[in-house]
Amino acid sequence: MKELFEIRVNSKALLVDSQTTVAVAVVRAGVLSFRRSASGECRGPLCGVGICAECRATIDGVPDLYTCQHWCRPGMVVETEKCPCGKGA
């Protein structure tokens, strides 16, 4: 059994393990749209491997990190951009 710990995604607490990427944790928190595009579209991750930059979010105050390239750590605080569809932050 993997050890679970708490992180916060857009103020919502959830339990994850250390084998979960931050991108997946954001999805699990019910966030479909990670950011708002230049013309206002809702966007989620595309490539999953640190190329496309669509999954970027703020982790522990550091903006624009590729969430698919980071593992969850206890106490992490993740913030995504506000999105007009209401399925984002």
Partner: peptide
């Protein structure tokens, strides 16, 4: 193709490896 939940084939596989259910 820019809608959320449209992924690369390898990309979705990588997300699944990263814990996506």
């Amino acid at each position: 193709w820019t809608l959320p939940n449209v992924y690369g084939a390898g990309g979705l596989q990588a997300m699944a490896r990263g814990g996506l259910d």
